[in-house]
């Protein structure tokens, strides 16, 4: 996330063009929305015992368990005035989520956008997304589930233990799905990554050119990690 913000700052200065990132969380992590309270949402003791990072995002939305083995996270960063970022925020979610819908189509999966910020397959959520508009840019990031470890998710996220029941776990499975569950086969990370690249390119009408962070961006990201994203002041702010 420090990298995302560093790219936004670089874009604000006119040093970089629209950027798409695809990445995984290593170690696995829980991120909370910017308006959530860490201690409300996350079993930090459990996460610490399992070497699961905890972090607060700069975007709203809910708490998300990012499983290294179970998802890819994308972030798309565009200048504020870009054609893909209309003023109507829900419409901009719809436009950018078309990249995910197209990617899932490449895998043979029919999906649709569900306002405010979800992509669903057969009525079940396979992707959640969140957006912020700052530094003269729009950042939208989200996850796409390759696999789902409901048990780990319920332990990392604070759900009153007395409320976790077979029914609740079954209910979660009715509301959320993953690519491997939908297709009934072991889809690889590479296959998903390629589908995402092609999906975003086609749906958004963009040519993707492989790039790398500038030294300035790397330095800025390092500074943001040290001064913001790794601090208790930021992560436990609310």
């Amino acid at each position: 996330m420090a990298i995302d913000e560093a790219v936004m700052l670089s874009m604000k200065d006119g040093n970089v063009g629209p950027t798409l990132r695809l990445y995984r969380w290593f170690p696995s992590a829980v991120s909370i929305g910017t308006f959530q309270g860490m201690m409300d949402e996350v079993d930090t003791q459990f996460c610490h015992s399992q070497n699961i990072d905890v972090i607060r995002r700069i975007t709203g939305g809910g708490a998300v368990y990012h499983d290294y083995a179970g998802e890819i996270t994308y972030s798309i960063i565009i200048p504020r005035e870009h054609r893909l970022g209309p003023d109507d925020i829900i419409n901009s979610y719809r436009i950018l989520c078309n990249g995910l819908i197209s990617a899932l189509g490449h895998l043979g999966i029919k999906s649709e956008f569900k306002p405010i910020n979800d992509v669903i397959v057969g009525g079940k959520k396979v992707s959640g997304n969140a957006q912020t508009r700052r530094h003269s840019c729009i950042l939208q990031h989200g996850t796409i589930l390759l696999d789902l470890d409901v048990n780990m998710m319920f332990q990392a996220l604070k759900v009153p233990k007395e409320k976790i029941s077979d029914k609740m776990i079954a209910d979660a499975r009715q509301r959320v799905t993953s690519i491997r569950e939908v297709l009934g086969r072991n889809v690889s990370m590479n296959e998903l990554r390629n589908a995402l690249r092609n999906g975003f390119s086609e749906a958004l009408g963009i040519e993707l050119v492989r790039g790398h962070l500038t030294k300035n961006e790397r330095d800025t990201a390092g500074r943001l990690v040290a001064e913001k994203y790794s601090t208790r002041e930021w992560n436990f702010k609310r």
Partner: peptide
């Protein structure tokens, strides 16, 4: 989460998984 003085808000934090722009 809030504290009250009588019926008056003394301190308050509004949390949730909503979106607000600017945050």
């Amino acid at each position: 989460k809030m504290s009250l003085e009588g019926r008056m808000i003394k301190s308050i934090t509004i949390l949730g998984d909503f979106f607000l722009h600017p945050e």
